[in-house]
Design a protein around this nucleic acid. Sequence first.
DNA 1: ACGACAGCCGACCGGTCGGTCGGTACAGAC
DNA 2: GTCTGTACCGACCGACCGGTCGGCTGTCGT
Lengths: 253, 253
Amino acid sequence: MSRAVAFGKGLWALGSWLWIQVVHAADYRTYGESRNPKSEIPNPKAPSPEPNFVTMSHVTREATLDSRQDILRTAARLFQQRGYDATSMNDVAAALKLSKGGLYHHFQSKDEMLFHIMNHALDITEERVVKAVRGVQSPEERLRMLIRLHIEVVLSVRDREVTVMLHENHPLPPSLRKQINQRKKDYIHFVEGVIADVQKQKGSKGSVSPRAAALALLGMINWIYQWYKPEGRLQAQDLIPQYTEMLFAGAFL
Amino acid sequence: MSRAVAFGKGLWALGSWLWIQVVHAADYRTYGESRNPKSEIPNPKAPSPEPNFVTMSHVTREATLDSRQDILRTAARLFQQRGYDATSMNDVAAALKLSKGGLYHHFQSKDEMLFHIMNHALDITEERVVKAVRGVQSPEERLRMLIRLHIEVVLSVRDREVTVMLHENHPLPPSLRKQINQRKKDYIHFVEGVIADVQKQKGSKGSVSPRAAALALLGMINWIYQWYKPEGRLQAQDLIPQYTEMLFAGAFL
DNA sequence: ACGACAGCCGACCGGTCGGTCGGTACAGAC
DNA sequence: GTCTGTACCGACCGACCGGTCGGCTGTCGT
């Protein structure tokens, strides 16, 4: 219970993506289905003047929660299509047939929206990849399923939040960005572990470290959103076996 | 001589990256060392009102060319650090100890700067990867060298243009964006060819198509900029053999 | 000596940005 | 009927955006 929010030591050189694992994720999050009684303050140190709107989810009725979800879904769509910076709050409000003032009734800032979108993307990954994979016994099958599910999540038309999280790195106040980055890192670590298990099982002589393999795997999958066209050749169902094959045996079998 | 600039038929669903090949690249480009007598109009159709500042490189003295390079290098650094949208022309001017008016003496628009930065990134890739690889006879050695050189280009601290090109997709007026996208596509096609040659030589049974392999390879390499820290573990010299190994034999040898 | 011109400045433009605020409409509790 | 709080509107704010412009200065060709 209650997440420790231990920050990584350094900032990432460029954008830093990396995710996190699971287990927690229910805290600091008004968005999504999870409803925990009292969420904890995400930034524990000092009475910092930083935004911590994550706590202030007052009562949040049914209707409010729903409309917040609607708003975030619409915002995620626009952010993914036009980019975060290029999308104005007016754009979001207009797409929802709302005035900007009305929109600000639900969210304190544009940053807050981005944070919730990214956090929700990590919830999705957790829910649909990590949790599903955990049940599989065989290490090799576990990895195969992870590859498949991760690809499906990235390509899912429904979950534009994930693409937004993958591409949009820069903004966000430091404390929020650290939360996102920590979750990303934990996810990488999880993938690393899954790969290490397979290596152990297969008795591989370790010419490729689990870390490098994990980063390469996540890279080739996460990059898909940059070129994928739903109507193009190379569909998800073609991609999954080929990417799996490549990780297990290379491109020249 | 003189590039045909045949546009791809469709727009990419999301950002579209993809590069291009080589051979041409000297045209429509005031920037860089290449100096060709008369550059061609990049957008041939109609007297379009679209920007085509690429032609108007009037005389371009030595000094002018140099300062343009300086400006673009500085701009590339800022764009890479803060993102294109989040960097104002004032920021760029200030970093160069120039007024905004002075900056606009060298470039017509912010878009033009981004275009030249991206185009230069493609020149770099051409020069340092494609051209170097072309000379290698053995298909396998050619691919190995391509992997190494491409990684080195992405990780080069000197060439921030490449990272900008990899990450920044949205803006740019249509005709310019198409030029960049075409060059990206051609590069993908080139990588695809290199991989196909190796498959042929190795007599692989083709469970992985050259296209999927090329996209996966480029994905895992191009994604590096998202997590790489120069001071972290996993340096370029560790990355290169491991990524190579993965493409040739998978992660579990 | 002088005109031409590249290089640059700084004031300025219209527009848009994220965000605020006073107020209204309405629903439910009492 | 009144009170309370949510949902929302629309006018508004200061800051800043990309871009323009008239004019100054130093250099070079003649």
